[in-house]
């Protein structure tokens, strides 16, 4: 715990990022419980109201409180981003480990696959999949993960290449330990640093991709709403009902900045060479 606090204190951007993300998480988790409104109850008599005391961020076309919707949307956005990241990291780590540790033809095939997938314009492909009727939340998460694990796999693979040649790994191998044990006890713990950094950065890029999809009307579908869905609703009238697009955009940007700050901060701590000197 004390070590954690020390790490936090060692880098300003990490500190700021953690604060931003904690606030947003609290806002999304606790917010809907405290709000007097329900995210999806329509009240057409209060359609398109400007920000006021009773609706601090205004209302949308259906008279739903924007603040409550954003808090609720945060849950969806973060859940989608976190779970897609989790899957992507699991896939990427397994592929990277297999590729780096086993090598040979397996490595060649897997890296070819990575190249092919990296060459796909992500949004086109996911758009196609979702547009063809695979719209459930679980499937959106799956598609996002399936097209995001490649960077992780590359990073893990190249780190494994380095780690594999370390003498402590050779020593473990010489003891006749099983492969699985060598991978999970000796290699994986020593490559977690870069892995954590890219995981955090992946969360932020997945928030952006999910928002783009929902913004196009092809991501999270009503009655569910992510921040991107809400922003899409604001597109109808970006000037007359400016508060919808402005506030939903601000929260997306803030959240992404938060994760990027954490990623940068962690990178600075782990690899002081590329970052600013302190």
């Amino acid at each position: 715990m004390k070590g954690l606090i020390n790490i936090l204190h060692s880098d300003r951007s990490l500190q700021l990022g953690v604060i931003i993300i904690s606030v947003i998480c609290l806002f999304s988790i606790l917010g809907p419980l405290l709000s007097p409104y329900h995210y999806n109850t329509q009240n057409l008599s209060e359609s398109f109201q400007r920000p006021s005391w009773s609706h601090p961020l205004g209302t949308d076309f259906f008279g739903r409180d924007l603040l409550t919707r954003l808090m609720y949307g945060g849950r969806i956005t973060l859940t989608v981003a976190f779970s897609a990241t989790l899957f992507a990291v699991i896939i990427g780590t397994i592929v990277g480990l297999a590729s780096g540790f086993i090598g040979g033809w397996l490595d060649r095939i897997l890296m070819r696959l990575v190249d092919i997938l990296l060459g796909f314009p992500k949004l086109f492909v996911i758009l196609l999949l979702v547009g063809m009727g695979y719209t459930s939340l679980g499937l959106v998460v799956t598609f996002l993960a399936l097209f995001s694990w490649m960077e992780i796999a590359r990073i893990v693979r190249s780190d494994v290449w380095v780690a594999k040649e370390q003498l402590y790994v050779k020593s473990a191998e010489a003891l006749g330990l099983r492969r699985r044990r060598i991978i999970f006890r000796h290699i994986l713990p020593n490559i977690t640093g870069p892995l954590i950094v890219s995981t955090v950065l992946l969360i932020s890029s997945l928030i952006l991709i999910e928002s783009s999809l929902s913004f196009l009307g092809l991501g999270v579908q009503p009655p569910n709403a992510s921040w991107g869905t809400i922003l899409n609703e604001g597109r109808v009238d970006p000037v007359g009902a400016w508060w919808i697009s402005v506030f939903s955009g601000i929260i997306i940007v803030t959240c992404v900045i938060g994760f990027n700050l954490i990623g940068d901060g962690l990178r600075n701590i782990l690899d002081p060479k590329t970052g600013k000197k302190t």
Binding site: Q166, L167, Y168, V169, K170, S171, A172, E173, A174, L175, G176, L177, R185, H186, P189, N190
Partner: peptide, 27 residues
């Protein structure tokens, strides 16, 4: 492998930096 064991040139690099001495030996 259990019949032929190395002690490498670089004694520091042959020990996993994330494992305690006890873990290293008991492994």
């Amino acid at each position: 492998r259990s019949n032929i064991q190395p002690v490498f040139q670089n004694s520091g690099a042959s020990l996993n930096p994330r494992m305690s001495a006890g873990k290293i030996i008991s492994e």
